[in-house]
Every structure is written in C-alpha cells, then in structure tokens.
C-alpha cells in the first residue's frame, strides 16, 4: 500500500507521528498492568488492549518514517528519539497510580480515539484511512471495556466511588490537550479536526459519568505542551525504561 506522494508533506508526517506517539505511550502504560491487575480476566483484557495500541503505534510510526523519508523505521522512531521529540499528549503518559486512574485515562482517551479514527477512516490519504478504519473497530472494544469499569467503580462501593471520582478529577484537565485547535493536514480530511471532536466527546463522556453517578469536573486548568514536545516529569522515566536496551547496543538488530 503506497500513499500518493502529492498529498503528503511534512505536516502529514507530523500528524501521523502524533497519533503514533499517543498510541505507543498509551500501550506502554497499559502493558504495565500485566501481572498487577485486580483479577486475571483483567490481566488478559489489558494485555489485549496494550497489544491493540501497540499495533496502531507500529503501523503509524512505520508510516511516519516513510513520509519522512530519512530511513527511520518504527524502532528508530520509538527508541531513538529523545523526550522533546515525542508528540504525544500528556494524558497518555500520566502514571497509572491505581486502577481507577487507568480506567479514567482509558475512557477519555478511548472515546477520543474512536471518534478520531472514525473520522480518519474517510481521510483522503488511503494509508491513513486504512489504519484508521482498522483501529476504529478495535478501539470500540477499549471504550466498551472502560465504560464497563467506569460504571462498576463509580456505582460500586463507597470506596470505589471515591477513588473513581478522584481519578476523573485528576485526569480531566489533561483531556483539553486532546482537542487543541489546529486544523489537520488536508490529507487527513475534515473528519479529523480535533476541535470538532470536543462536542461529541463531551456528550458521550458526560453520559457515562452521569450513569456511573460521577460528577463531571469543572473545566479550568488545562495543562498542555505534549504536541510541541513538552512533557511531564514522569515521561522521562517511561522513556528511560523503554529505550535503554535499544540504546545500550547501538546498531544491534533484535
């Protein structure tokens, strides 16, 4: 599958890199739950979701590398870049302090991803459209999973309600960055304008929160910077761990 070069340019490469970095960092966090989940079913489900996200990341980073034309493959992009070169939102890099935090992140990010990928599946660029159509189907499972747990934690015990509300409050400010204005490249199509996704995203998330007896936090503080390479302190630790073997053996093949 080859993208028509006329529609591509540096801005499409940057755009694809953002999507790829979001998926990669989210996968790294979700995979961290292996052997630590509250029940074995959840170990399996979270590994499954991590695998899906990693699959998206690999497809997107490979494509970003091709658009760039500098010979960097998915691994060179994942393991060879420094912190400030990553374009993911800060939401996905937040540490999963507890299961409620992991679920809040999965809900907010998953709904965003599904809306975005659904829009991108009609992109003018056929490669991006192909990846998005495939990913949209998988992301629907992630949202289903996150919604199921949001309901159970929000409307479960007093303790779980307290924890889930705290997680929602903690993660909420970071959701604003998902919808920062900035039109996508023409090749991505009109369905991919992040600013336009905020409305449907809010409606869907608010409905889930209400059903889960959780309060929707006020909009206020809106941390940002991920898209331009400014990240949280925790991100450096994530990268240090993820990249160290690759970097300790320059040029080695694995």
């Amino acid at each position: 599958m080859t993208a028509p070069m006329t529609t591509t340019g540096p801005d499409l490469r940057d755009y694809v890199l953002r999507l790829g970095d979001d998926a990669l960092v989210a996968a790294q966090r979700v995979a961290g739950w292996c052997t630590r989940a509250p029940q074995f079913e959840e170990d399996v489900a979270l590994a499954n979701i991590a695998l899906d996200l990693l699959g998206q990341a690999r497809a997107l980073l490979t494509y970003a590398g091709e658009l760039e034309g500098l010979g960097r493959d998915e691994d060179a992009l994942a393991f060879g870049r420094d912190e400030h070169e990553f374009r993911n939102v800060q939401l996905v890099e937040l540490p999963d302090d507890d299961f409620a935090t992991a679920i809040a992140k999965m809900l907010f990010f998953g709904v965003y991803q599904r809306l975005l990928y659904t829009g991108l599946s009609r992109a003018a660029d056929p490669t991006l459209a192909g990846i998005a159509a495939k990913a949209a189907k998988e992301t629907a499972y992630h949202v289903d999973h996150a919604v199921s747990w949001t309901l159970r934690l929000g409307d479960g015990t007093a303790e779980s309600h307290r924890r889930m509300q705290a997680a929602v409050d903690h993660v909420w400010p970071y959701t604003h960055e998902l919808f920062e204005p900035g039109p996508p490249p023409a090749a991505a199509g009109p369905g991919a304008d992040p600013a336009a996704l905020r409305g449907p995203w809010c409606r869907e998330v608010e409905q889930v929160l209400a059903e889960a007896t959780l309060r929707r936090p006020e909009d206020g503080w809106a941390p940002t910077g991920g898209r331009s390479g400014v990240h949280t302190e925790a991100f450096g630790h994530l990268l240090a761990e993820m990249q160290y073997v690759y970097r300790a053996h320059p040029g080695a093949r694995w």
Partner: peptide, 9 residues
Amino acid sequence: DGAWVREAA
C-alpha cells in the same frame, strides 16, 4: 490491591 475493584464489581 485489586480487592476494592472486585468488591466494587
């Protein structure tokens, strides 16, 4: 660590 989650479910 997962006890509260299972109890919630």
